[in-house]
Write a protein that binds this DNA or RNA. Structure first.
Lengths: 157, 157
DNA sequence: TGGTCCGGTCGATCTCGTCCACTCCATGAG
DNA sequence: CTCATGGAGTGGACGAGATCGACCGGACCA
């Protein structure tokens, strides 16, 4: 994980469809060697995949909400996690240190769908309470930040 | 935005580097017509871009936290938003309906960096209080969900 | 009936991805 | 010092993909 790798990662993070040829021009290497580096970054898990960024509103998922989950004493976290995973509307799921042990980011087309979703989450065994906050607007999301100098615990592979 | 467009979007959302030729095979069209559709989806803003998914831990950003911001009465939201935007560690920023008017998702290498970041956010004029929650683990993040049938308010273009 | 638009196909051409053989250089053993 | 070794990069060759223009057929409308 040297300066060139960081540059490659940053370029791909900004535009995941950048061709090897273009990456090669940017970092001053040839396409095959850049490809070699990218493959290694993928294998080491630094690059976990590639995604098109979709405008949620444009595909009819205009409502975004954050749902916090407060568990009861009997809560089986593994079970809760699995049941949450089965709900497709949950885009992200974090396990937290706090009263609310999970926070979910969900997207739905209409308020009625959100209501139904909240009921479904609240009905999971071990969930004592949920706390939902509507997002009025997303200022930005998944903005790439610079990679720290010492970035890369190389020792993965 | 028909069934074919939805399939294309779903494929690209799962693997943003899928070639036009491959997309064409999947949806039963030829490469040029698929490319045509993708270009239109990009122009309509349905596809907002492409990103490599990077493992934060692998690049030295091992700590993820959520920071809620409670404003005071004098808060100038535009100003707060701009000052937040200038902080690179803030990966996502949502404007919320609730006591906490913003929620930030941040990533830092070390606890010391988080502490410093919290002080920086807390020092922004109009910020009365912050509430930070450490994420112990990310169960999943940015998982694509199926596009609703009526998805696509076409009327964009 | 005929014109026009939209979306698709086909074929040609250029670029890109990918494989392989070779080079260069740093390292370490004899 | 010399030689083997392995990692990283280069250059060429070839197949696959991207991209452009010309053409085709159905829907719509005067």
């Amino acid at each position: 994980m040297d300066e060139i790798d960081r540059t490659i990662v940053n370029l791909l993070r900004t535009d995941g469809r950048t061709s090897y040829a273009e990456l090669a021009r940017r970092v001053g290497l040839t396409a095959p060697s850049v490809q070699d580096r990218v493959v290694k970054l993928e294998r080491n898990g630094v690059i976990a995949g590639y995604k098109a960024v979709i405008d949620s509103e444009a595909i009819g998922l205009g409502i975004t909400a954050l749902i916090g989950i407060i568990p009861d004493n009997s809560a089986d976290h593994l079970d809760i996690c699995e049941r949450l995973r089965a709900i497709p509307q949950i885009e992200s799921c974090y396990f937290l240190a706090g009263v609310e042990c999970y926070q979910l980011k969900v997207r739905v087309p209409k308020m009625a769908d959100l209501e139904q979703l909240i009921h479904r989450v609240g009905a999971i065994p071990g969930v004592a309470q949920t706390r939902t906050t509507i997002t009025l607007s997303t200022k930005w999301e998944d903005r790439p930040q610079p990679i720290p100098e010492d970035g890369g615990l190389d020792g993965v592979g």
